[in-house]
Amino acid sequence: MTQVWDTLPQVLIDGLTLGAIYAIIALGYTMVYGILELINFAHGEIFMAGAFIGTAVLIGLTGLGWVAVMPAIFILLLVLVITGGLTGMLGMGIERLAYRPLRKASKLITLITAIGVSFLLQDIVRFITETQQNNYIVNTPSLFPGSLSISGLNIRYSFLVVIIVAILMMVALEFFVNRTKWGLAMRAVAQDQDTASLMSVNVNKVISVTFFVGSALGGATGVLFAIHYGTIDPYIGFILGLKAFTAAVLGGIGNIRGAMAGGMLLGLLEMFAAANLSAITAGLLSSEYKDVFAFAILILVLIFRPEGLFGRAAIEKV
């Protein structure tokens, strides 16, 4: 038990970082699901693409000598904006080419297409990276090196950056969805596409904007991930995306605040499990089981409370 207490502060810090990343990716899933009722499997890959694009931009800026002279915050903002724009376009393009023609098709087919897109993106990123540097595992140059040390507790500067940027992005999204005209249109389309289109809402455009916003956030999160963890490869997106989806389900899919809370909760739980699972079970389960833990949560939530912790149960009408 003492070990649990001793590790708790570090677990909280690591958990919050991971949780913030889950939360923003979960937002992308939840927004798309809220509108199209589609699990956009490719969203995890957009996050991964964001990490790679961000790293490339960062390396490019270092080459130009900008990183050395300008404040790191400015560089970070620049990278975030460029990456967010590019991944947003990527998400919009995917929607236009792969999902829109299938909007009337059966769900099974759309889901299979989403998996296809995700595989395609993984491989495209892999071979672009590999042709560039013969190896698909990339080290991101660290933008915020060093760490604070408070009474034995190790707080990296990049942790603060991740948390602050993540919170800013979430606040901005809340504002966008609840206070702007586009947000209003999005909520209307999510409620009822046909009625919304009768109210002169351009449904296709709203869906495009949703994909843009979700993917831009996902790509920006990729940058944060790359800066904080330092190593990226083309396959980080799938499992991480899956866990973010778990977070979205945990918070009630289609529910934006729920996704934020679900992400934080899942990140904390996972880090807690990773640190303490073997101590709690007296060595029976190693910390390798932390992924099992996340999936088990997903399965349990889906089975017993499919509307999520904060969602309302939908009644199926025949």
Binding site: A98, T113, G116, S118, F119, L120, Q122, D123, R126
Partner: peptide, 11 residues
């Protein structure tokens, strides 16, 4: 390129 081919085939 396995994943590439499979992804493209699926789509």
């Amino acid at each position: 390129m396995q994943r590439f081919f499979f992804g493209a085939l699926l789509i």
